[in-house]
């Protein structure tokens, strides 16, 4: 990040990948997947607006640094194996 206004270029060009921004801090509910029940349909991966689900061997692998906890994955899961747990517990 620039220290002074003079360090900002006249035409600012975005160059850094946004993965540096940890949006996981926005989350109020944490998705937890019961991988025993998971049928690996990857609906959760397909609909994640934050690209925070990776395709794992046994089921979804969450990127808790970026997951905002919207709950779409739990809602679209056909076997309801994803639970949204309050972060303060």
């Amino acid at each position: 990040m620039p220290g002074t206004i003079d360090e900002i270029p006249i035409t600012p060009i975005n160059t850094t990948n946004s993965t540096a921004v940890k949006t996981g801090g926005w989350r109020a509910f944490r998705p937890i997947c019961d991988t025993d029940k998971c049928i690996k349909c990857w609906s959760c991966w397909k609909f994640c607006p934050d690209v925070s689900i990776a395709i794992g061997e046994d089921g979804p692998i969450y990127d808790y640094d970026h997951c905002k906890g919207c709950g779409i994955c739990a809602n679209v899961c056909p076997v309801k194996c994803i639970e949204m747990i309050p972060e303060n517990k």
């Binding site: 993965t19 921004v21 990857w42 991966w45 395709i55 990127d63 640094d65 905002k68």
Partner: peptide, 24 residues
């Protein structure tokens, strides 16, 4: 994994969209 849409991601996490944003 059997997927119905291409696996390559050209959008990274860490964007500023709201929770559950349809536009993202």
């Amino acid at each position: 994994a059997k997927l119905t849409i291409p696996e390559e991601e050209l959008m990274s996490p860490g964007h500023m969209g709201c929770l559950g944003c349809g536009a993202t």
